[in-house]
């Protein structure tokens, strides 16, 4: 049976924060509704109020500020995928956003919702991780800024407190010379949650040596993280298939270290290695 609640749509951020200050514990925030409406339909959503932030202009910018790319939490996947700025300085995120669900889901679903929902399979999370993204959270009493890796505590769990909302995310822009890759595995070619996904950024110096490599893999660890063990294998090396495999194996070890051996490991271990290899090959080799 559908959940029942009241609906409130503030006209400004401060109005929203005031509302949350008063009713935060009884309120669910809605932006695109693509996650929330599922639990509202099943009756799992338990709240008195739903606060609609989807039209707050304060949550809708995509712009550079102080050398960082700020993306408002209510910016949709479709907008991220198409926006010239994201395509320019965060192409790996733009690519990931273009892989989410379907046209309809991308037209509705927002980056803030994707982060707050904190699904291990969320497509924007690995790209945000390689951009060292920080989440800006506001409440009536102030603002805090958290690294995404700290913001998400586990599958579907964040440190967002009642009364708070995500206003935007801050990304380090991709510097010139970097290459990028986003790869995902799904059970069909569209409209399918990723079985696992990978975002990678890499920079090769004039001598053909990898100077910087950032790698994040979705659906293999309980919390988003950077695969530093694999990054270390790659940095200061020349891009080389053998090294790619070494890095890929580090990732799968990391996965098993975190989650132990499960029935799904038989597939996920070789698959994550394959996917990481695919991302690295895509990053550095014109031909796999």
């Amino acid at each position: 049976m559908r959940s029942r609640f009241r609906y409130y749509r503030p006209t400004s951020l401060s109005e929203a924060l005031d509302f949350l200050a008063l009713h935060g514990t009884d309120t669910a925030i809605v932006a695109g509704g693509t996650d929330l409406m599922i639990s509202a339909r099943s009756g799992d959503l338990q709240c008195k109020y739903v606060l609609d932030v989807s039209r707050l202009n304060e949550l809708r910018p995509v712009a550079m500020s102080d050398g960082l790319l700020a993306i408002g939490s209510a910016v949709t996947h479709a907008e991220i995928a198409a926006h010239p700025v994201t395509r320019d300085v965060a192409p790996v995120l733009a690519k990931a956003a273009s892989c989410v669900g379907s046209t309809q889901i991308r037209n509705m679903g927002t980056i803030g919702g994707n982060i707050a929902n904190a699904s291990p399979a969320a497509d924007t999370i690995p790209p945000l991780m390689v951009h060292n993204a920080k989440i800006v959270v506001k409440s009536a009493s102030g603002e805090r800024v958290e690294y995404l890796g700290d913001f998400v505590r586990g599958p579907y769990v964040t440190i967002l407190k009642p009364g708070e909302l995500i206003t935007h995310v801050l990304l380090e822009p991709m510097m010139s010379g970097y290459r990028h890759s986003f790869q995902r595995i799904a059970r069909r070619r569209a409209l399918s949650i990723a079985r696992m996904n990978v975002a990678a950024l890499g920079l090769v110096d004039g001598n053909g040596v990898i100077q910087d490599l950032r790698l994040s893999v979705g659906s293999v660890t309980p919390r988003p993280c950077r695969m530093t063990v694999a990054e270390d294998v790659l940095t200061s090396n020349k891009p080389d298939k053998k090294v790619f495999w070494e890095a890929a194996e580090k990732v799968s070890h990391e996965m098993v270290r975190w989650s132990g051996i499960r029935p799904t490991t038989e597939y996920k271990k070789p698959a994550v290695e394959g996917l990481v290899y695919r991302a690295l090959a895509d990053l550095f080799l014109s031909e796999g």
Partner: peptide
């Protein structure tokens, strides 16, 4: 067939 992932197109 992608032997890295098991995907078939």
């Amino acid at each position: 067939v992608d032997s890295l992932s098991g995907e078939v197109r």
